[in-house]
């Protein structure tokens, strides 16, 4: 059981929130309940309505609870989790599942009901060194500077936008084996930077795909069952054709594990992990803390249909005669 509270929400939003929390029980891995208390697992803060929201967020995080920013405009950049107005079930489910993954224990043993509820700070228990994506996933990282081949790119993580100097495209920079990456909590280094910001809705997907280096973000567990809540924007399958198979596989009602993705598609482990990281950073991944025995819906796949789908795919790649 996880508890949720809120600060600064309008009466209408509060009503919607409470109803959604009641309705969503079956859609999240854990059960969530709304409680009028400061001592909750997560607190939603309407940063548009509260002047001192930054201080409130600091206070919540100091108590090891999860602060979820709720606002209409661009993120204030204080929290890891954010819901854009208006309140929607899908957004709430995605955030709850991400919060649950962050609170879940990280040991490989199948957790009991009791230890599944033990809150732990995201990432603390992993023995692996932090990779770039783990740092991105932290509340202190708001800007990312990528330099390679005399080109420089600054990425504003909270607002899904970037600016780049030089001729290189974003994908090229992120792919480069020569790149160097710096993280910063402030936008200090953006002032001297001439080009204007470019919006990129698929930015976090790309960070997952290009910067994962075969390692899952620490808050995710390799044995977990992942369910995709939304498909990536169209430039992702264009950049990474295997994204189609991965999206479809993770869209099953029961979701899928990375192991299943590898055994049922021709996708490499690096691609599958990059894709899952990208989905997680983009807030469209629902995570079940461990692999359930019930695998749910399986594809109706015969040799005949498999061959047929491959032939159609092959034909779509060819230009018309």
């Amino acid at each position: 059981m996880k508890t949720l509270s809120s600060k600064g929400l309008t009466e209408k939003d509060l009503l919607v929130l409470k109803s959604l929390v009641d309705l969503m029980m079956s859609r999240t891995s854990d059960t969530w309940e709304y409680a009028e208390s400061d001592n909750c697992d997560a607190i939603i803060i309407d940063t548009d309505n509260l002047k001192n929201s930054a201080a409130i967020i600091d206070e919540i995080e100091a108590q090891h609870a999860v602060a979820i920013e709720y606002s209409a405009g661009a993120s204030a950049g204080k929290t890891r989790f954010r819901i854009k107005k208006p309140l929607r079930a899908a957004d709430l489910i995605a955030v709850f599942n991400s919060v649950e993954a962050g609170l879940a224990p990280k040991n490989d043993a199948k957790p009991s009901a009791a230890n599944n509820e033990t809150p732990a700070q995201a990432g603390i228990s992993s023995s692996r060194d932090s990779g770039t994506l783990d740092l991105l996933n932290g509340p202190e990282s708001r800007f990312l500077r990528v330099t390679a081949n005399n080109c420089e790119c600054i990425i504003d993580l909270a607002n899904d936008r970037y600016k780049v100097t030089g001729d290189a495209a974003l994908d090229e920079l992120l792919r480069s084996s020569e790149k160097s990456i710096t993280l910063s909590a402030t936008s200090g280094f953006q002032e001297s930077f001439e080009p204007s910001w470019q919006d990129a809705p698929s930015l976090k997907w790309k960070l997952g795909i290009f910067l994962s280096e075969g390692e899952l973000i620490k808050t995710l567990h390799s044995k977990s069952r992942f369910k995709l809540l939304r498909w990536p924007p169209s430039d992702i399958p264009r950049t990474m054709p295997t994204a189609m198979a991965l999206s479809a596989l993770l869209s099953r009602k029961s979701g899928a594990t990375i192991e299943e993705a590898l055994s049922e598609t021709n996708v490499s482990s690096e691609e599958a992990i990059g894709f899952v990281n990208g989905a997680y950073l983009s807030g469209v991944l629902s995570v079940r803390a461990f692999n359930l025995d019930n695998h749910g819906q399986q594809p109706i796949k015969t040799e005949h249909t498999k061959g047929l789908f491959d032939k159609i795919r092959d034909r779509l790649k060819r230009k018309p005669k």
Binding site: S247, S251, Q297, T305, R313
Partner: peptide
């Protein structure tokens, strides 16, 4: 995307 859905999900 449609055939991927039919094949995998």
């Amino acid at each position: 995307a449609l055939i991927s859905t039919l094949e995998f999900s």
